[in-house]
Design a protein around this nucleic acid. Structure first.
Length: 850
RNA sequence: GGUCGAGUGGUGGAAUCGGUAGACACAAUGGACUUAAAAUCCAUCGCCCAUAAACAGGCGUGAGGGUUCAAGUCCCUCCUCGACCA
């Protein structure tokens, strides 16, 4: 008996094998064939192949995209649905160092694990398009695209502060530094200026902002990108330094408050600091700058921290009234934002107010309308100008315009748009990344290597750390690599920085279209056919950086005439996170579930009895609360895993994992199995008949209802949970009918196929159908089947439900009213009271107001 | 502090345009089957009141107010939680 029950462990590997052997999901690359059908490009953000392997978050991302791909394929689309590996980067390099292996070796191991784990879930990827960003055949084109950016003057060298760890002799990323220390070893980290490659993403700020309007993205996500780009309108104003032959400019969004500017502030790094500082203040200013150098931007600008600063002894001239105002140096002003200098208006800016209060600088009210005295609190709202000469009486907006016009006519300032977005720090002093296709001549000029030199392959080196003299690891390579002969015979030294981990993921969605092209990154005709990506799905952690970087590169490619869409990702969704219970003691230490004993809502450590806090948190290794997708597959199969991940809630919602819930969908799959298979003997269920589906009218109707709902819910992506609910209702109905038309079951299997492809395929096969159900056409529903002769009308009295009436579907409002008034239960509540109003909502309800 | 989002049974979650609140599951309880257990099947399953039982009734979507014939859904105030930014 057991041998004939639902056994995902047997059928799933079998069909995965068949799909692989018969290349069931291979997408043609011939443009003629492609053009015969419409296209749909659905992409899950490819994984970073760390040694930790596939986690539940990946599955929550890839299951819905796979369902959608299957669904569109059955609807007659060519579906681009690829998978690949984001493989360069620091975690792999670190593992390589720990294990004393080459990063390429670690990467190969990790990507093989990932592929094997992903394939067990039964996704319909075209594996022939698999890419790996760390392979020369891929990064050759990453380098090629970089050269196009370089040619457009979008890459430049600059001195930038980086996190430098003297003990390790290396540069660290922001994520690796906490409280001025390297998180792994606790070694101190300092900020140091280093020569770095930058990409001029700010040149595209306006277009990155404007073109958000073209996209079908969630509003919240667009808003995050807008904030990040941070466009603000205002003015650049020039201040002269008193008694010195120098001047500086500030950017302000509030030129209307210029009369209230009572001091100026330079960022500690501002080049004019040394020049203007009075001899008496030099040592104090110097010490302050030293201190500020080791603080992060976040520490410096945090509203909660106390403002610090030091007076330079110099004065600036306020251009609108020629008053001398003191120049301070303070670290709440950043060199990287605006001009690195500000005019401070303590009356109308919270931070300036705090600073002025701390240091006893005068506060002047120039906008009236505050509830509190200006000495107590800055007033940042709208109001009318006061104490402002020619601006007096104007509202803020008008005052801004008038002040800008005045500044421009006096040649003391200009209208200016400012962005929060910074240029992109694009080099890393590491090994495991793309080498730059650039070289340096002895005279300091930089030359780009010709396209036919690509790829610039990573050289073998003896250690993955910087050289003694602080050069990046690639400088350890032998002369044969470091020195390069240019086409004109000159010898140059290669650039030894590498590109950041983001580089490879900036264009991978294009490489999938033509993954094996050796003449170009991708074929132009294919790009025109497939782009844009119709649905891109991934975690919120990429809502800003990755998406902004990829959009930037895409726009550059557009300007180069290499792509024909302005934006790469037309549709986008963020899947929610998976939460799970975690156990933490008072000291913050986490415990594994198997170390914990639970009584009701209390939890204690099994061995010590120490009480623990139980909380729902994002599933993650560091919280000791992960559930491995592979374990779930071992116990319940891939189809159950897929269904459960969709059934727990909307794709975009964050929902807690519950082991018991997996049982529920597993039982559903067993019921589906028994619709077709007699578990006693393995034969087909005796209830199955060759009769037409219409011979079971109630079931036939439920089927069409199910087709309708599954079609609509799958299309919407976010409602796949209710699609599954409806399939459950259908199966519950089908389990109860006396005879089961095979036609009805086969149509149902089509609906199930995108969600639970293995069981659908197996039952399809057992019903003597050849080929793959994945290639069958998506069923249509018949609206006339859904219509029924009678409808249920809700009868309300004064808005309260009193009875349900079964009435003919074509009953008129009048007839509904008569039926309701005749109803005994309704009558009881009317009790002869006068009827004031009757509202009939067609097909739904009648409300009688008495 | 700002912006955005969310608060519905014991749990996850359903509920087009304002129109049957709690679909579908999980857990729990009772029953059938079984030597027994598992599995399966059937039943109950928001709270209160009433009852031998049933029919019925009242209250219920974080709190308070409002609009409406009708509010989980719209408006106002507040509380709590989450995400992002500062």
């Amino acid at each position: 008996m057991e041998t004939h029950s639902y056994a995902p462990g047997e059928i799933e590997p079998h069909w995965q094998d068949e799909w692989r052997k018969k290349e069931a999901f291979k997408i043609p690359n011939d443009i003629g064939t492609l053009k015969k059908k419409p296209k749909f490009y659905v992409l899950g953000m490819f994984p970073y192949t760390s040694g930790a392997g596939l986690h539940m978050g990946h599955a929550k991302n890839y299951v819905p995209t796979d369902v959608l791909a299957n669904f569109r394929r059955m609807q007659g689309y060519h579906v681009m649905h690829p998978m690949g590996w984001d493989a360069f980067g620091l975690p792999t390099e670190r593992t390589a160092v720990q294990e004393n292996e080459h990063p390429a070796h670690i990467t190969k191991r990790n990507t093989e694990t990932f592929q094997q784990q992903i394939q067990r879930i039964g996704f319909s990827y075209d594996w022939s398009r698999k890419i790996d960003t760390s392979l020369p055949e891929y990064y050759r084109w990453t380098q090629w695209i970089f050269l196009r950016l370089y040619e457009k003057d979008l890459a430049y060298l600059a001195d930038v502060p980086v996190n430098w760890c003297p003990a390790l002799g290396t540069v660290l990323s922001n994520e690796e530094v906490k409280d001025g220390k390297y998180v792994e070893t606790g070694d101190p980290v300092e900020r140091r200026l280093m020569h770095q490659w930058m990409l001029k993403i700010t040149a595209y700020a306006e277009r990155l902002l404007e073109d958000l309007d073209l996209l079908d993205w969630p509003d919240g996500l667009k808003e995050m990108q807008r904030h990040w780009i941070g466009r603000s309108e205002g003015a650049e104003i020039t201040f002269e330094v008193k008694d010195r032959d120098s001047e500086f400019t500030v950017f302000t969004t509030r030129p209307d408050t210029l009369f209230g500017a009572t001091y100026c502030v330079f960022a500690p790094e501002h080049p004019l600091v040394a020049q203007v500082t009075h001899p008496d203040a030099v040592s104090e200013v110097y010490n302050y700058i030293q201190e500020a150098a080791n603080k992060s931007d976040l520490q410096r600008t945090d509203l909660a921290t106390e403002k610090t600063g030091v007076f330079t002894g110099a004065y600036a001239i306020n251009p609108c009234n020629n008053e001398p105002i003191p120049i301070w140096v303070a670290d709440y002003v950043l060199m990287t934002y605006g001009t690195g200098a500000i005019m401070a208006v303590p009356g109308h800016d919270e931070r300036d107010h705090e600073f002025a209060t701390t240091f006893g600088i005068p506060i002047v009210e120039v906008i009236s309308g505050s509830q509190k005295p200006i000495e107590e609190e800055a007033f940042e709202g709208d109001g009318v100008c006061v104490n402002s000469d020619f601006l007096n009486g104007l509202r803020v907006d008008d005052a801004k315009e008038k002040m800008i016009a005045w500044l421009e006519s006096e040649k003391k300032g200009t209208r200016q748009v400012q962005y929060r977005l910074r240029d992109w720090l694009f080099s890393r002093q590491r090994y495991w990344g793309e080498p730059f296709p650039l070289a340096h001549l002895e005279d300091g000029t930089i030359v780009q290597l010709p396209d036919d030199h690509l790829p610039v392959q990573l050289p073998p080196i003896d250690a993955y750390k910087p050289t003694e003299d602080g050069k990046p690891p690639l400088a350890r390579a032998d002369e044969a690599w470091v020195k390069v002969k240019l086409p004109d015979g000159r010898i140059a030294t290669r650039e030894t920085n590498i590109m950041p981990q983001w580089a490879g993921s900036c264009w991978y969605y294009l490489r999938f279209l033509d993954a094996h092209n050796t003449d170009a990154p991708f074929d132009s005709a294919l790009e025109r056919y497939w782009m844009p990506v119709d649905l891109y799905m991934g975690g919120t952690e990429h809502a800003v950086l990755h998406l902004l970087y990829a959009r930037f590169w895409h726009k550059v490619l557009y300007d180069c005439g290499l792509v024909f869409t302005k934006e790469p990702f037309q549709g986008l969704l963020n899947q929610g996170t998976i939460l799970a219970e975690s156990f933490q003691d008072d000291a913050g230490k986490y415990y594994y579930p198997h170390e914990v004993e639970r009584n009701d809502d209390k939890a204690v450590v099994k061995t010590s009895g120490k009480p623990l806090h139980v909380q729902l948190e994002k599933m993650s290794k560091s919280r000791f609360n992960v559930i491995n997708p592979n374990d779930v597959i071992d116990n319940y199969g891939a189809d159950a895993l897929r269904l459960y991940l969709l059934f727990i809630g909307p794709v975009t919602a964050s929902t807690p994992w519950q082991d018991a819930g997996v049982e529920g969908v597993y039982r559903f799959l067993q019921r589906v199995w028994r619709l077709v298979v007699d578990e006693q003997n393995g034969e087909l269920n005796e209830k199955l008949t060759a009769a037409a589906g219409t011979t079971e009218p109630e079931l036939w109707r439920e089927l069409h209802k199910t087709i309708k709902q599954v079609t609509e819910d799958t299309e919407s992506i976010d409602k796949m949970n209710t699609a599954i609910s409806q399939m459950m209702i259908f199966v519950n109905t089908a389990t109860q009918v006396k005879s089961l038309p095979t036609e009805t079951v086969k149509i149902f299997l089509h609906l199930l196929a995108p969600y639970a492809p293995h069981i659908a395929q197996e039952l399809w096969h057992r019903l003597s159908e050849a080929g793959f159900i994945a290639h069958a056409a998506w069923p249509q529903y018949d609206e006339s089947v859904l219509e029924s002769a009678t409808i249920t009308i809700i009868a309300q009295v004064n808005g309260k439900l009193r009875n349900r009436l079964q009435l003919p579907a074509d009953a008129t409002d009048k007839e509904i009213e008569e039926a309701a008034l005749a109803d005994e239960r309704v009558q009881r509540f009317i009790e002869g009271k006068p009827i004031r109003k009757v509202i009939v909502v067609p097909n739904r309800l009648i409300n009688i107001v008495v």
